[in-house]
Design a protein around this nucleic acid. Structure first.
Lengths: 325, 325
DNA sequence: CTGAAAGCGCTAACAC
DNA sequence: GTGTTAGCGCTTTCAG
């Protein structure tokens, strides 16, 4: 690998000069500029970002911690976040925590040692204090840590409300909520709060099923969905906190010879691709994942630049009526 | 951020000594060791990996270029690759090329400047020479570049054979192949080769539909699937080169009042999660994604360690019979 | 067993 | 306009 020294030698100038043309700093004669550029071409020079980072104390890398990059929602988020970060001149170091406390801690330490400029926490199973101690720009997804740490989320309460109201309006008399474990400190739990409240207000009977703390285990979704119909054969409406869970509910319903949406109505959450290409097409609450991804990155960059930021960044959701309700 | 100097001062030793305990090199008295460890704790020291990388000329970062991290197959690959790389002490820098030539080139240059120790090419739209010129450990997925660059793939011909034979054995008389653009130099095109050959051998009529070069556009899958049934209403079997495409075919078939699997049989490829949770459950060819991911990482590490490697790393696929055939 | 000093590749004062 | 030099945080000869 050729270094800046090699370029300098090749071009017959000093390393400073090379550095200057590299960074477009200071005044340089056109003659020197072109000589240097030519030399770079000739020896196929690429600046070493590691050395630059060391000096600048800035790596231009951001850490992205998600529970699982293969879960469609986080896959979409990962995809869009990386694309936008790249546009903004940042590289993404990807981490899958699997909602495992120990692994998340390891990842955070690794990212700090790697001198990332900031971390997007799509998974955050640690205590509030752990995050506050980080001394690094961070931003969370769907969790409010404290008054300083910005977060991005959608209006989960609104989402829960829209979903539940739709089920009731469509005539459901006994509805179930199936979602992630509510003991996790996540804003998405508000979907359930809304569910309960709307149902109570309308005197509708409810059932609650939660996944294990570790979540994201598809086999468990299958079990839960089957259990739901076994224990409550009279259920006629389901609000699932993700489209994936909704898919398993639909699968179980069909297996039980139930007709969708006549016997049972199902609404999911996220509006990931599956919702559209499955049959029947899934009614769902759409999160604006692209906008969220951009906001996550922007909030990080603004912190790096010590700009003022809003701690709360909540976006509206949208009900997408399809065939399952 | 405290540095090694701060630790040295705090512990009353030299930086060399601190570095030694950090790396467990040379002989150190237990007394000094514990003093240093204590000092590290006290000032909450984290070694700066950027500085280490600069010296060692090794970043412990691998680049992972995929067409799209939100496509389920690549999402799974990304997830498993990252998990295994982390286990092996490597961090993953993620890049989404969108099968865009220019973007892929930019990513490769960025990764080189970032001094990654190797690159996994899940997307490779460039010319053979571009890859040969890299001077960096690389490994490709599903593409043979030349005799030096190792690749990981599944036995695509076998996959195409199994799928096509199944359709024929189940009684199909006119079958279609829908898949990625065949002008891309990908080993997955062998699925089509097998399809054609098996069909010819059995005197079965065939139809071919390819996606755009840029692929991975779900709206296009929808169009293609609809077009298929419009132009060939007598099709009774479809081999789709991904489960996602298969899903769209199924959706279109249902829309056309066709009965699955009686009127039309569909088989996908990949065995991603959707295949299992959709209704009807999708018959598909399973790729051992976890094994492939590990192999990709191992091949990279072995190259870094100048170990001997096999260029061809082809794994067998498995037919998973479900409800769509 | 421990320390002083050089250097990884790059940038930025500070000279000239 | 351009070069000399110190130093980013770390590791490793080489002395002692």
């Amino acid at each position: 690998m050729p270094t800046i020294k090699d370029v300098a030698k090749q071009a017959g100038v000093s390393v400073t000069t090379v550095s200057r043309v590299l960074n477009n700093r200071g005044y340089l004669s056109d003659d020197v500029k072109s000589k240097v550029h030519k030399a770079m071409e000739e020896i196929n020079y690429q600046p070493n970002e590691i050395a630059r980072s060391l000096f600048r104390k800035k790596s231009n890398i951001i850490g992205l911690i998600v529970p699982s990059a293969s879960h469609p929602f986080f896959a979409a988020l990962t995809n869009l976040t990386e694309a936008y970060a790249f546009e903004k001149g940042y590289k993404v170091m990807l981490c899958n925590s699997n909602l495992d406390l120990k692994k998340e801690k390891e990842y955070i330490e690794m990212l700090k040692r790697s001198q990332v400029d900031g971390i997007i926490m799509g998974s955050h199973t640690l205590d509030v204090d752990d995050y506050k101690a980080l001394k690094l720009p961070i931003v969370t997804l769907d969790r409010r840590i404290d008054e300083q740490i910005p977060f991005v989320s959608c209006d989960n309460y609104q989402g829960g409300q829209l979903a539940t109201e739709l089920l009731i309006q469509k005539g459901c008399k006994k509805i179930a909520y199936i979602g992630g474990n509510l003991t996790l400190d996540l804003l998405s739990n508000k979907r359930y709060d809304a569910f309960e409240e709307v149902a109570n207000r309308n005197d509708i009977e409810t059932v609650l099923l939660e996944t294990d703390i570790k979540g994201f285990n598809f086999a468990e979704y299958d079990d839960l969905a089957c259990k739901l119909f076994e224990e409550h054969p009279d259920i006629d409406g389901v609000f699932a906190s993700s489209d994936i869970i909704a898919s398993y509910v639909i699968k179980a319903a069909i297996k039980n010879q139930m007709n969708i949406p006549d016997d049972i109505k199902v609404i999911g959450y996220d509006n990931i691709n599956v919702a559209e290409f499955m049959t029947p097409e899934l009614t769902t609450i759409a999160q604006p994942i692209e906008i969220m991804s951009k906001k996550l990155v922007d909030l990080l960059i603004m912190q790096m630049d010590s700009e003022n930021i809003n701690v709360e960044n909540v976006f509206p959701v949208k009900l997408i009526q399809r065939q399952t309700t």
